[in-house]
Simulated scan of single mutants.
Amino acid sequence: MEDDGDIRIGSAEREEALSALADHHAAGRLDANDYEDRRGRATDAVVRRDLTSLFTDLPEPRPTLRPAALSGTGPAQPPARGRSAQSKLGRTLVSLSPFIAVAAFFITKSWLSFLLIPIIAIVARALDE
């Protein structure tokens, strides 16, 4: 089998590695400095080899890197359309929330209207789930 350490990784693989590193830190296998160093290297990782090198001296959990797909095949699962539309709506609401709060402030003349910002963020988060 050919070495697929040079295969580029995505955000999901980086997040899985960060989660595994957090588990090792919580278990006491990594001190704070080593944990922060490995976290930074996991965040900056570009290829699989960058992630696997972070776990050579650690037991499970490790990120599960799926075998490289054959060339010409698409992603394993297509992204869900409804989810991305909900995420876009949530991001739009959060982006507009300061403007909505300022408009409500001028209408009501009450500083309480600025509480709309976190309320809108909570509602947007609930829409994403």
Rank of each mutant, 00 (worst) to 15 (best):
Ala80Met: 06
Thr43Gly: 09
Ala104Phe: 10
Arg48Asp: 10
Phe99Val: 14
Arg29Trp: 07
Phe55Tyr: 11
Ile117Pro: 07
Ala85Arg: 08
Arg41Ser: 06
Gly82Asn: 11
Leu21Asn: 04
Ser95Phe: 09
Ala22Trp: 01
Leu54Ser: 06
Ala76Tyr: 09
Ala27Pro: 01
Glu60Arg: 07
Gly28Ile: 01
Ala104Ile: 01
Ala26Pro: 02
Ile9Asp: 14
His25Val: 01
Gly72Glu: 03
Leu115Tyr: 00
Ala103Gln: 05
Thr52Met: 13
Asp34Ser: 05
Asp34Phe: 00
Glu16Arg: 04
Phe105Cys: 04
Asn33His: 03
Leu58Met: 06
Met1Gln: 13
Ser71Gln: 09
Glu129Ala: 09
Ser11Met: 12
Gln77Asp: 09
Ala32Asp: 12
Ser19Pro: 04
Ala20Lys: 05
Gly74Arg: 12
Ser97Arg: 04
Ile100Glu: 06
His24Asp: 04
Ser87Leu: 13
Leu93Ile: 13
Val94Arg: 10
Gly90Gln: 03
Ser53Ala: 15
Pro75Asn: 05
Gly5Asn: 15
Arg41Lys: 08
Arg83Gly: 05
Arg41Glu: 10
Glu129Ser: 10
Ser87Cys: 07
Ser53Tyr: 05
Arg62Thr: 15
Leu21Met: 04
Leu54Glu: 07
Thr73Met: 07
Asp31Glu: 10
Ala27Phe: 01
Gly28Phe: 00
Ile107Pro: 00
Ser84Leu: 13
Arg81Ala: 11
Met1Thr: 14
Phe99Leu: 13
Ser84Ile: 07
Pro118Asn: 11
Glu2Phe: 00
Arg81Pro: 06
Pro79Trp: 02
Ser11Ile: 09
Thr52Asn: 11
Leu30Ser: 11
Leu89Gln: 07
Arg41Val: 06
Phe55Glu: 13
Thr73Ile: 03
Ile117Arg: 14
Ile120Gln: 10
Gly82Lys: 08
Leu30Tyr: 01
Leu65Glu: 08
Asp3Gly: 02
Arg41Trp: 01
Asp44Tyr: 02
Ala103Gly: 15
Val46Glu: 15
Asp50Ala: 02
Ser110His: 11
Ile100Lys: 06
Ala69Cys: 02
Gly72Val: 03
His24Cys: 02
Ser11Gln: 14
Pro67Cys: 07
